[in-house]
Design a protein around this nucleic acid. Structure first.
Length: 345
DNA sequence: AAGCCGGGGGG
DNA sequence: CCCCCAGGCTT
């Protein structure tokens, strides 16, 4: 049996029952594909269910406020996905009359939809012969065909896409694409792949050359940037506090946080009070104290955020304070959400 | 071509 | 501690 036949056969016997496998509705497939970008299936499932319930149709998502969408997305990370999701829902509703386009090219033009996602929707929903190439596919092809081109080099990306297109089963593309990804996720895993019981073992180059552990090849790793965050948490006499929305570039765009003083290194309380003049309403606080003696190090894939939360008692009650009990309504990064949990009302 | 963008799970 | 996850956008 050839490669695609083996994949299809394996998929038929081993596929998981997942919520988005009960439909070919482009809206739901699109929703699942955006959520699963750089995200494990297990982590995405509860979010998918939440979104389908809150927004059964693309028009429902288009009508929502971005803040509401971000709130539902909270904790899933890569928040540009949520912002693009919302923007695309509006485009589909207003310019495509609520109906997803059925061509690869039109799908690719949508915000947040790249080659992988356009191929996935085109093949799963419209049965178009477009090969998906995600992290699973890179790994499976690299091992099975013994390809040592770096998967994140220009040549590698091009070569793997061509190879994937060459070996795909166009007649069963819908199941073949899902099959090769499922095979990578469950059988041909990054660590400890189950080669002993693998139906592709006989024809797998990496297995026969004992190079499963060294494939796929990936170029370098990114360096971690260290940042020092000091959050100023006002709590006035009415138990009200203050949030700000992050704007511009960088992490957590459009999410909320407490007023932030970012510094080049850890600071003392004296350094902090010197800066309070720049924060409206916090100029002459009656008290400032450190909430967490032990610094919190919040780890992102490319940044470590060394974080301290300072409780600031303003000299006057806040003009437009937010009751602490209402903080849960705002979309915030996990770092902030975890802190809010520790606040006693 | 390289950097940036989250959070979580597993070894 | 490391790696990787149903990638895409920006520079």
């Amino acid at each position: 049996m050839n490669f695609s036949r083996l994949i299809l056969q394996w998929y038929k016997e081993n596929k998981r029952l997942l919520p988005w496998r009960e439909t070919n509705d482009p809206y739901r497939i699109w929703l699942s594909e955006i959520m699963l970008q750089q995200t494990r299936v297990a982590q995405g499932i509860p979010y998918y269910l939440k979104f389908v319930k809150a927004y059964p149709q693309v028009q429902d998502l288009a009508r929502a406020k971005e803040e509401e969408v971000l709130k539902l997305w909270q904790g899933l990370g890569y928040y540009s996905r949520a912002r693009n999701l919302h923007a695309t829902a509006k485009i589909i509703t207003e310019e495509y009359n609520g109906k997803f386009p059925s061509s690869y090219k039109e799908l690719l033009s949508l915000k947040g939809v790249g080659d992988y996602t356009a191929s996935a929707i085109a093949s799963i929903c419209f049965n178009l012969p477009k090969a998906v190439v995600d992290g699973n596919v890179y790994r499976v092809l690299a091992r099975y065909y013994g390809i040592d081109l770096p998967i994140n080099s220009r040549e590698g990306v091009h070569y793997f896409k061509e190879k994937a297109t060459k070996v795909m089963d166009t007649a069963n593309i819908r199941y073949y694409n899902q099959g090769i990804m499922e095979f990578g996720a469950l059988q041909c895993t990054p660590q400890n792949p189950n080669c002993r019981e693998c139906p592709l073992q006989d024809s797998c180059v990496a297995f026969s050359t004992n190079s499963v552990g060294s494939l796929p090849v990936k170029l370098k790793k990114n360096k971690v940037r260290h940042r020092f965050f000091n959050y100023l948490v006002p709590i006035d006499g009415n138990k009200k506090t203050m949030l700000r929305q992050r704007r511009g570039k960088g992490i957590w765009q459009n999410l909320y946080e407490f007023p932030l003083l970012e510094t080049g290194k850890d600071i003392e309380v004296g350094d902090l009070t010197e800066n309070l003049a720049n924060y409206e309403g916090l100029e002459e606080p009656s008290e400032v104290y450190l909430h967490n003696e032990d610094k919190i190090v919040h780890k992102l894939s490319h940044q470590h955020l060394h974080t301290r939360f300072w409780i600031v008692t303003p000299s006057a009650n806040l003009e437009e304070g937010i009751p602490i009990g209402e903080l849960h309504k705002y979309p915030v990064p996990v770092l902030i959400a975890d802190f809010i949990k520790t606040l006693k009302i």
